[in-house]
Simulated assay, not measured.
Amino acid sequence: MAWNEPGGGKDNDPWGGNNQGPPDLDEALKKLQEKLNSIFGGGKKSGGSGNGGDFHLSAGALGIVAVLAAVVWGLFGFYQVDQQERAVVLRLGVYHETVMPGLRWNPPLMDEVNKINVTKVRGIASRGQMLTEDENIVDVALSVQYTVSDPANFLLKVKSPELSLEHALESSLRHVVGSSRMDQVITEGREQIAIDTQERLQGYLDTYQSGILVAKVNIEDAQAPSQVQDAFDDVTRAKEDRERLKNEAEAYANGIIPEARGAAQRQLEEAQAYKEQVVARSQGEAQRFVDLYDEYRKAPKVTRERLYIDALETMYSDATKVMVDVEGGNNMMYLPLDKLMEKSAVTRQTAGSEPDMRQLTDKVIEQLRRDSQSSRREGR
């Protein structure tokens, strides 16, 4: 049963029973004024009409209220700036100062404090199709990492720093890509394009006084449009094959050229050695001839016979068979020197002596005499 239904009873009346309704607002306000007047030392003023009396605060009470209000106002002015932050203070809407990390105080209601993180590395990404210097279309995707270098400029100079950064990034990238060939953008020139884009982008941001410092520009992807990607893949493979063949040719050249130079140097050294050998042998032969001539002048007969014997020794040392024309006969005498040498070798092995050329010569002469005598007898 609801409290306001008939028969509910006074216990169901939220205002205290007897269905009196809510208390009078004026009476409640009057009681509150009396309590405050008694606390702060005031008193009632007789009005004579029975309407109650207004209360007033003493000077001491007003001072206490003012002090309390000032304390509360001062406490609201304290704030903490973290180590990675800087605080930009606006006084009555105008830039006042940039506050460093630590416990700070600024008058509330007058100053507005904006904390900005200056160490956090932020990033944005961009992607788009652009026209190169050689009039080809490329699809480039890149990302930018940046930090806040000047909190005041970042907060006040530019309305939307991130949006300005995106526009400046697109402008910088289009300018750099438009000044480069397509093969540079797609293959080996990515790093240089990223560097040039970063320099130009930082120049734009400094001109805008955006308070942004670009830390890194990364070219994440650069390729031809999907409609012609297969053709550009073929071109890329052809360039890779060209570089591979070029490297193989250089490797072959690096291997064959030193060998050719070594062979040429060897031939030069052999020629120089042969030249020195021929010159030395010629000088030796000339000196030998001079010495021999001197000896010949001293004893011509003995020297002539010695030369003749030396010539025979030299000639017979390489001959195995000798044919001798016998005087007074028509037959040629045959001397088997190889057989004689074998017999001589057997004799030396048996006797244990060294070979003697003179003994062999004596045997040859003895054999010649015998053959000469037999030829003469046959002629008679």
Rank of each mutant, 00 (worst) to 15 (best):
222 A>N: 00
127 R>G: 04
351 A>N: 00
198 Q>F: 01
143 S>H: 01
350 T>Q: 06
56 H>I: 03
331 N>T: 01
218 N>E: 15
219 I>Q: 02
263 A>V: 10
166 E>L: 10
95 Y>K: 10
12 N>T: 13
49 S>D: 08
225 P>T: 07
205 L>Q: 06
301 K>P: 01
160 S>Y: 12
145 Q>I: 00
126 S>N: 11
56 H>N: 13
24 D>Q: 14
158 V>N: 12
42 G>N: 07
114 N>C: 05
133 E>M: 15
81 V>Y: 04
250 E>T: 13
17 G>M: 03
112 E>W: 00
257 I>C: 06
298 K>F: 09
91 R>M: 02
67 V>S: 10
307 L>G: 07
108 P>E: 01
161 P>N: 08
30 K>G: 11
310 D>A: 14
156 L>N: 02
219 I>C: 03
102 G>L: 08
97 E>D: 09
201 L>R: 03
165 L>Q: 08
70 A>I: 02
206 D>K: 03
307 L>E: 02
179 S>Q: 13
64 I>E: 11
276 E>H: 05
338 D>W: 13
51 N>A: 04
289 F>A: 14
283 Q>N: 10
370 R>G: 10
61 A>N: 04
319 A>K: 15
330 N>P: 10
137 I>Y: 08
359 Q>M: 05
111 D>W: 06
12 N>C: 09
198 Q>A: 01
229 Q>I: 12
257 I>Y: 08
95 Y>C: 00
202 Q>S: 05
26 D>P: 06
209 Q>I: 04
280 A>M: 05
193 I>K: 03
336 P>G: 11
338 D>Q: 15
324 V>Q: 02
126 S>P: 00
20 Q>A: 12
186 I>S: 11
18 N>E: 09
156 L>T: 12
178 G>S: 11
115 K>T: 10
199 E>I: 13
33 Q>D: 15
62 L>F: 04
166 E>C: 02
53 G>P: 03
367 Q>D: 07
135 E>M: 05
27 E>I: 09
280 A>H: 09
23 P>M: 13
60 G>Q: 12
104 R>S: 04
346 V>P: 00
211 G>D: 06
247 N>I: 05
259 E>S: 07
97 E>W: 04
324 V>W: 01
214 V>C: 04
315 M>T: 09
182 M>S: 12
59 A>S: 06
128 G>N: 08
269 E>S: 14
261 R>H: 09
99 V>Y: 01
20 Q>H: 07
27 E>W: 01
319 A>Q: 11
64 I>W: 08
298 K>N: 10
312 L>H: 02
250 E>A: 12
54 D>P: 11
143 S>N: 15
270 E>A: 15
89 V>R: 03
147 T>M: 13
210 S>V: 00
355 P>V: 07
218 N>M: 07
14 P>C: 06
74 G>V: 08
158 V>Y: 08
171 S>P: 08
25 L>F: 12
324 V>N: 05
121 V>A: 06
147 T>W: 03
225 P>M: 07
259 E>N: 04
313 E>R: 13
184 Q>T: 12
33 Q>L: 13
209 Q>M: 11
365 I>E: 04
146 Y>E: 00
153 N>V: 05
316 Y>R: 09
273 A>H: 11
266 R>E: 14
70 A>F: 01
13 D>C: 09
283 Q>M: 14
145 Q>S: 06
34 E>V: 10
191 E>P: 02
52 G>D: 08
250 E>W: 11
238 A>T: 11
127 R>T: 15
169 L>E: 03
96 H>D: 14
271 A>C: 06
232 F>N: 07
375 S>W: 01
